[in-house]
Write a protein that binds this DNA or RNA. Structure first.
Lengths: 174, 174
DNA sequence: AGCAGCATGTAAGTGGTTACATGATTGT
DNA sequence: ACAATCATGTAACCACTTACATGCTGCT
């Protein structure tokens, strides 16, 4: 897949779980996919409009209360599965922390340590956040949850690795 | 730091180690910073031109052989240190693999496993590449190498974490 | 003579962020 | 009445990629 259609995938994915307003799509993405995905309003609304035009989502003007939510159509679900099946390419890595650390000898003294301490703190904060999510989904063993737990587990593994690395480096710096 | 000036930092950093042509800057970045940084020609040449205009780099038209390489000036070194000292913000994460895995229930059967096997293979390939670099720099214990080893170690930690995660998930999938 | 790699650039397009503008709804 | 939050959009701008155009150098 071209790197385009990524937003489309995220939006269709969100709507595959429930009908939502654009605002709610945003909330769902930052809330649920937050630690590994991100979309801004400037992306979501135009995407939603495009999807609606193509018949992949539809505005449900149901009576009474919550009207005007977007719901995914059958074509939308088909498209979602299609997008999921396509191969994708990861964008080239760009790690601002490592770029700075690499030129560590030009860093003013103490700044290297500071960078590593930040990285450690960040990892610890992430682990705390993940622990909370773990707690929340503890009793859910639906098939969907199985995959969601995998993404959570990824975050945990990576955060633990970053934590261990930072501590190792800090020790070496003494 | 705004997310701009990142390319500037990478280019100045490269030139702080040796004078280079634009082509060589690219090679240095993909070669040495390869596993955590990336620049394309379309970025490098305009950046080099801007830097030259600002007096941060200069074209060395030395006699004889290699003429026309860019070398960093004193102002350039000062700017590099300045950029290194500035705080930076990581761009929001976007992990295409996890986005797909998250909607795993909509994946055609076997595709989830395939994604995880790819991730595992990728981690193993990365570890092999890192091992080679380790071997190459084994005997160098200069102060610069100390920091460079940290970035290498980061890659190793993260790759091992990804490998462990993928294997865990594959086991759970049975 | 011809090819591979070195070297420099530019133009078009894209994906994405940010900031702004606007208004409805809800709670206090 | 007011503030906060829900909700929808758009315009400007930015970094970056890709593809293309061009020519040089050194090897075979």
């Amino acid at each position: 897949m071209a790197r385009t259609a990524q937003t489309e995938l995220a939006v269709l994915g969100a709507l595959s779980t429930a009908p939502m307003t654009g605002y709610e799509v945003r909330a769902a993405i930052t809330g649920t996919l937050g630690h590994f995905w991100h979309e801004s309003f400037g992306q979501i609304y135009p995407t939603l409009a495009r999807l609606a035009e193509g018949g992949l989502v539809r505005r449900s003007d149901s009576g009474r209360t919550a009207s005007g939510r977007f719901e995914i159509t059958d074509e939308g679900m088909a498209r979602l599965r299609e997008l999921l099946a396509e191969p994708f390419s990861a964008p080239p890595a760009r790690n601002a922390l490592l770029l700075r650390l690499f030129f560590g000898t030009e860093l003013e003294p103490g700044r290297g340590r500071e960078l590593l301490e930040d990285a450690r703190a960040q990892a610890m904060a992430a682990l705390a956040a993940f622990a909370e999510i773990r707690e929340e989904i503890r009793d859910d063993d639906s098939p969907a949850q199985r995959y969601r737990t995998m993404t959570l587990s990824y975050g945990e593994h990576l955060a633990r690795a970053q934590l261990a690395w930072a501590q190792e480096c800090l020790r070496d710096l003494d």
